[in-house]
């Protein structure tokens, strides 16, 4: 039942996104132009450390902008309709999974742009892709939850950043640590710790979202 609802809702979100292409195009262009501005701003070749930090910071900003609209995109009346046909758990899980898809696409695109413009520093591609996947998942789940919170308040967009930046730090710093390992060495030694932390954070956030979202869903 839950799975069926989640599937239907994800399908709805994808259709909606493809129908209102300007939202998706806007976020893609935001990503590309941010990376290009950064590329022009740094004249010398980036060190591995700067490459890594810039990559994740840009992805964070793109995520905040891309996911921030999750609960304000449709009209309030439409949400009242959803109350009557779907459970809140299905709504939040479908949003997280849909945003995971969005973040994964944005992360891969951002990665491609970095390879093109900022130079290839990669020595362990598999590890970096794993970091991208876990990162997309974590960013998607935390930011979806924050988007749900911010959507209940006025001045939604500045709140989105203010609320999410401090609480996303454990995830972001662990991701940076993991991808730094992928940029500096080809072996997998030392990756177990960060991987366990990332999985724990993702797991905890999903549980919290599942339990807390019903309180946000209805007035």
């Amino acid at each position: 039942m839950l799975i069926k609802e989640v599937k239907t809702l994800i399908g709805k979100d994808i259709k909606l996104e493809l129908k209102q292409k300007y939202v998706l195009n806007g976020i893609l262009l935001y990503l590309l132009s941010t990376i290009f501005v950064t590329y022009l701003a740094f004249e010398e070749v980036l060190t591995t450390e700067t490459w890594n930090s810039l990559f994740w910071i840009i992805l964070l900003f793109v995520g905040v902008n891309g996911i921030g609209k999750s609960f304000v995109q449709e009209s309030p009346a439409r949400y009242i309709y959803y109350y009557t046909i779907a459970s809140p758990q299905a709504v939040v899980l479908s949003k997280i999974l849909y945003n995971l898809l969005l973040m994964a696409i944005l992360a891969l695109l951002s990665f491609g742009m970095f390879l093109l413009l900022m130079g290839n520093r990669l020595v362990n591609l598999e590890l970096f892709l794993l970091a991208l996947l876990l990162g997309s998942f974590g960013l998607s789940s935390i930011l979806t939850m924050v988007a749900a919170i911010a959507s209940r308040a006025s001045n939604n967009f500045s709140l989105m950043a203010v609320l999410s930046f401090p609480i996303i730090l454990p995830l972001l710093l662990t991701l940076m640590k993991l991808s730094r390992l992928a940029l500096t060495g080809s072996d997998w030694s030392g990756t177990a710790g960060p991987l366990v932390i990332l999985l724990t954070i993702n797991f905890a956030v999903i549980i919290l979202a599942y339990l807390l979202f019903p309180y946000l869903w209805r007035d």
Binding site: I149, I167, P170, L173, K177, G193, I197, V205, L208, L212
Partner: peptide, 21 residues
Amino acid sequence: VFNIFAFILWIVFVMVLPRIS
């Protein structure tokens, strides 16, 4: 809701940070 969500992530942060930095 934000308080509960943020407090738990803050505790995670305080515990995780010494391990990664």
